[in-house]
Amino acid sequence: MLKLIERLGSIEASRASDTLTLPFELRMRGRLKAQSDGGQEVGLFLDRGPVLRDGEGLEADSGEIVIIRAAAEPVVTARIDAGLALARLCYHLGNRHVALAIGADEEGGWVRFPPDHVLEELAERLGATIHHHQAPFDPEPGAYAQAGHAHGHSHGHSHGHSHDHSHDHSHGSEDGHGAHEHDHVH
């Protein structure tokens, strides 16, 4: 088994001898056994840290390099005009504490998230057009995330989410609460 032990950050594909294509849920894990796209048995033995990003390199204890690819998986893309409408949509969806991929292209702005009828309904109420499809899901890493920076804490979400919101409340606190790319214990 190829033991992948070090995060290299984003690398050129030509440096890698193989690829490992994983869905978002598995890219959140630091420990995993899988089969590479080339058919090798691989094991992740990484520090608890940020989500593995599409294009990130991992180095094995033997020196081989494997590049991570985000697998196509069921997603919802909500399309809306770029600018204030997109900002408003991102704000309201982000306030639900879900991972979001955000972008813009020639058709306007978009927000991508895993299928969820409540989020889809919210997006439609805000004026977005919803598209269900298969695509790689590589959400925003969060404002406090840094490539290669390990968040050595466990965050169990045991606190209540019934705040009254009549006070100034920041969801992006220094504990990484607003980032949501840290490992969750399953």
Rank of each mutant, 00 (worst) to 15 (best):
H132D: 15
H149S: 11
A150G: 03
E140Y: 15
H151G: 11
F137C: 11
H132N: 14
H155I: 01
H157P: 00
I130P: 00
T129Q: 10
A128H: 02
A135W: 05
A145I: 08
E124V: 04
G152P: 11
G152M: 10
A143D: 08
H155Y: 13
H131A: 12
H131E: 15
H153W: 06
A135Y: 07
I130G: 00
G152F: 04
H133L: 13
A143Q: 11
T129D: 05
H131Y: 12
Q134S: 12
G148F: 06
H155F: 08
G156D: 03
H151C: 15
R125W: 01
S158L: 10
P141F: 05
A135N: 13
G127A: 02
H151D: 15
F137P: 13
L126W: 07
P141N: 04
H133M: 15
G152T: 14
H155G: 03
S158W: 10
P139G: 02
E124L: 05
G148L: 02
A143R: 13
G127P: 00
T129F: 01
H131P: 01
A150P: 05
H149V: 04
P141Q: 09
A135Q: 04
H131I: 15
A147L: 13
Y144H: 14
Q134L: 14
H159M: 13
H133Q: 15
A128E: 07
R125C: 00
T129R: 12
D138W: 03
E124A: 13
G148V: 01
A147K: 08
G142D: 05
A147N: 02
A147Q: 07
P139V: 05
A150Y: 00
Q146C: 04
H153A: 06
P141I: 10
H159G: 14
Q134A: 11
G156Q: 08
G127F: 03
A145T: 14
S154L: 15
H157Y: 07
P136R: 12
G127W: 05
G127Y: 06
Q134C: 01
H157D: 14
Q134K: 08
A128R: 00
S154Y: 14
H132T: 14
A145E: 09
A150I: 04
T129W: 00
Q134D: 15
P136T: 03
A145V: 10
G127K: 09
P141E: 11
Y144T: 09
L126D: 04
